[in-house]
Design a protein around this nucleic acid. Sequence first.
DNA 1: CCGTTCCGTAAGCCATGACTTACCGTAAGT
DNA 2: ACTTACGGTAAGTCATGGCTTACGGAACGG
Lengths: 109, 109
Amino acid sequence: MAYGTALTVLADPTRRQVFERLRDGPRPVNAIAAGLPVSRPAVSQHLKVLKDAGLVEEHSEGARRIYALRREGLAELREWLDGFWDDALLAFKIEAERSHRQMKGKTDE
Amino acid sequence: MAYGTALTVLADPTRRQVFERLRDGPRPVNAIAAGLPVSRPAVSQHLKVLKDAGLVEEHSEGARRIYALRREGLAELREWLDGFWDDALLAFKIEAERSHRQMKGKTDE
DNA sequence: CCGTTCCGTAAGCCATGACTTACCGTAAGT
DNA sequence: ACTTACGGTAAGTCATGGCTTACGGAACGG
């Protein structure tokens, strides 16, 4: 149940910011922490949690640690979410809605 | 940023159990709480949180409150997740895999 | 009515975890 | 070697929130 891990880990707003900052590409801790409302060690701790959860990966480049996104870490969470639309037809409808945001169907709401 | 709300709310394991129990259809609080490792009031509290987050909806039937899943509450979270695959081609592949998996009804793990 | 079932709310306890500061090792520049 | 950037780890503080028990009100059956 790694989707549970992903949910737990991404629940924290600060940690989510850290994670989202990696969207645009790998970065050293420095660059990630810059501008964030918390101290640099706090960011380090968040990165550790993210890494343990398989959501980021890290490699050293000299003195710096470069962190990068691991999209596969989100896979199980995605599948779990998809599981809520288990009917194929309904799933299709959802997909369509997502694609072009226009549904005049009979759905409530 | 309602996806943040959804993440926060679904991060708790017990609350997630409550939520998942509604997958098979609407249920009164009674039925939801049965078998869970926490007290009935705890379940009520979780349901309130879920409702405030737009993840479930509630209507009264006599003395009982019936709770039901609101899949739309997951929409933003889904979109946020999808946003991590911003390359159109890659996104398409993911969609295809998702559809495929659902058609087959095959569960992996 | 009276008891029972249903469930939401209040109050309080307690563990979890997100921060801080302080410190340490390592890498590179001079 | 000395120094300066980089960043992980330790220890301790404090707020958050998930749980419990206790209670109260609403609906239904007898």
